[in-house]
Amino acid sequence: MSDDPVVLSAPLIIEYPFSRTTGPVIGAFLTGLREKVLLGIKGSDGTVIVPPTEYDSFTGDDLTELVEVGPGGEVLTWAWVREPMAKHPLSHPFAWALVKPDGADVGFLQVVDAGSPEAMATGMRVRPRWAAEREGSIHDLACWEPDV
């Protein structure tokens, strides 16, 4: 035994050390994004839901009928961000919007890169801007831009 005090130390890394499989529905949607294809799914009443869900939120039924939607879409509502926060998808002013792709019946939360709030309007047409490198995540759909 040495007379020198021994100070023990160990690294502390906060993490969630597990991964999830995305399954046949969410996985199909994310894989579609990699191929620049937007997928929805038919709900119990025939409503086309985007992004597709594994079950109907109102009836609980399993859903399996994937359908291609888009590529264009319509803005259902929007909010203009004057000062983006650090983790926001764009570092310059942009709009959050619920975007309803053509052929779908509901919108989903997306970013519209429109330049200024004057360029935004409910009901406006938008088209997707795809990321240059796509890996099967929601980031493959970089944002939407006005389709004028």
Partner: peptide, 20 residues
Amino acid sequence: YHVAPLWPDAISLAALQARM
């Protein structure tokens, strides 16, 4: 999978609702 990776803040989400 679809929303949290975009880091939307609570004010922006409430603003979407307010405009509707």
